[in-house]
Design a protein around this nucleic acid. Sequence first.
DNA 1: AAAACGATTTCAAACGTTTGCATTAATAAT
DNA 2: ATTATTAATGCAAACGTTTGAAATCGTTTT
Lengths: 342, 342
Amino acid sequence: MNNITIKDIAKKFKCSPSTVSRALNDHSNINADTKETIQEYAQKMGYQKNSISLSLLNKSTKTIGVLVPSINHSHETLMIQGIQSVFNSLGYMLIFCVTNEKHNLEQDHIKRLLSNRVDAILVSISQETASLRDFSHFDMVNKRKIPLVFIDRDIVENYGSSVVIDDYAGAYLATKHLIENGCRRIAHLAGPQGLLVSKLRLEGYLDCLKNNGIAPKDDWIKHIEFDIEGAIEPTKNWFEAKNTATPDAIFGVNDYVCYGAINVLTSLGIKIPEEVSVVGFDNCPISPYFSPKLTTIDRKSYEIGRLAAEQTLEMLSSDTYFSEKSILNPILIERESTRQVY
Amino acid sequence: MNNITIKDIAKKFKCSPSTVSRALNDHSNINADTKETIQEYAQKMGYQKNSISLSLLNKSTKTIGVLVPSINHSHETLMIQGIQSVFNSLGYMLIFCVTNEKHNLEQDHIKRLLSNRVDAILVSISQETASLRDFSHFDMVNKRKIPLVFIDRDIVENYGSSVVIDDYAGAYLATKHLIENGCRRIAHLAGPQGLLVSKLRLEGYLDCLKNNGIAPKDDWIKHIEFDIEGAIEPTKNWFEAKNTATPDAIFGVNDYVCYGAINVLTSLGIKIPEEVSVVGFDNCPISPYFSPKLTTIDRKSYEIGRLAAEQTLEMLSSDTYFSEKSILNPILIERESTRQVY
DNA sequence: AAAACGATTTCAAACGTTTGCATTAATAAT
DNA sequence: ATTATTAATGCAAACGTTTGAAATCGTTTT
């Protein structure tokens, strides 16, 4: 590359690199004329300080690693935007890694982030990691004492800070809303097994049923992936079964699975919410425009990202290592996919 | 930080850093025993090579900068995934920057990426940059001779390679599809003014109308933002006007604006596609699950990202600077939002 | 015994920047 | 004239790693 360096400038003006460095950084004890000449020349030649050498010197890269399992869902992109909103204004750069829910990719990425000496790491753990429960790569992060913040998907052990939504409360809220509006046969499209998120939402759902004197039905709880496709089969099975009672409501682990369920219901000619109510979780930007407009739990994705970033900043500026757990309160967003009885 | 370095290991074994370096890199002329001892110890101590120092030495960071205007749309996240799919397997790290369609943010990010000595930059230019036509920041990139690839949104001047969908052809295709199925009063929800993408799609639409003997109607062409909300007002105006003819079809600049238009049509009790047909552009993952399932133009987002990444790799490996322009052919995906006459 | 060889290992420079300390030169105070 | 003071600049080390060339040392060949 033909990158002009401080040394080049020093040679040009027959002075030392130190002088150039100080001139460019507007140091006080540099002759005003010298300063101006050097600054002008640097500007003219398009000098750009080499952050790499600075990183090496300062042992700080002003770079943050962000690990997410996927970027298919608006929940994730909103979170990322929340993170960006905090870091960008402070001159940090964000390195993104997508793990595709794979454990080994997650490990690889962590290693590379460490090798690249990022100042901190935010991570939403992959499904595989959650179910394998192998957190050795996070040990490496801890050993280096660099701030580690878990976002969105918690892990049970104490490996760092975390910022999550109260999944249990959200699920409870959703289920309660259905019950209050007269639903009694509530099915649940649950998330992938092994993920704490799935477990907590399932528990919230189950506890709410129990507290309202409703016995859960195993057949009406299906663990599926976090996508539209996964919802198709289970929903079909529930509603095409002719010789048995069908659900009068579905609580989906996220909005996407509800989109799938709603597609099935619509194609079966089942009316939402008159015959079946549907509640999701996430509050995707599209949900208010879906047909029917989806009632859902606001997951505060952007807020989670923002908070996680701020948590990270706190950890970065503190000289003693500490970790903190933030749990956000979800709120119910009522729309048209659930009936309302007054 | 308590990062263990090669020097530490050298001290431990009373040998020189060079020996340690070679041992860790499995260099041939290092005593087998020495090698093993050192490797074992490094492993045990969790030694991680410092990529920063390597970057400084090699003048290559194995890092790619990716600049996008937003990450709200699946089109963008799919593109990003396409880019990731290529670079991740080759050990590159991706630094993401979101410009929020702002010119000054785009400039800032470019400067920082250059300062961080990324090996290449992929960029989807912001709306502001496109309309201001100030490309000085790309001059800086060119001056450094680092590969620059424009994705998705082209710029007219020759600043680097580019990978885009054939927007004109796609729009022509969409409009033709509507005309072939009997629509004659075709409205267009156009993209933001100033963007080449918007202009090309508008032209494809206009040319197709002209070639089929249909006179375009100014009132039926509205420039709006790339989101759901922007579509609401214009659509309302078109269909609530009582004393004049209403469109029998809408061609939306992307799927999102169609979601908005469809919402308005549905709430007005207008049947899709019986009364009004709707075609979008992008083929978002949700479109096949929308109600009605949206007919659209496949923008090949993932493919664009993948191709752009490969283009970049070629530029990186070539010792002479060159640029290349790839234009992908869009295809029509027929679903339920357009009527079909046979 | 001297020379040549091969196997290992070390030296030193390089990448670009910052920074405490030393140096120089010019001016002011004694 | 000498010393103290100030302003401006230079020196050298440091960050962690790699790498060509040089050095060391034991062994083999002549």
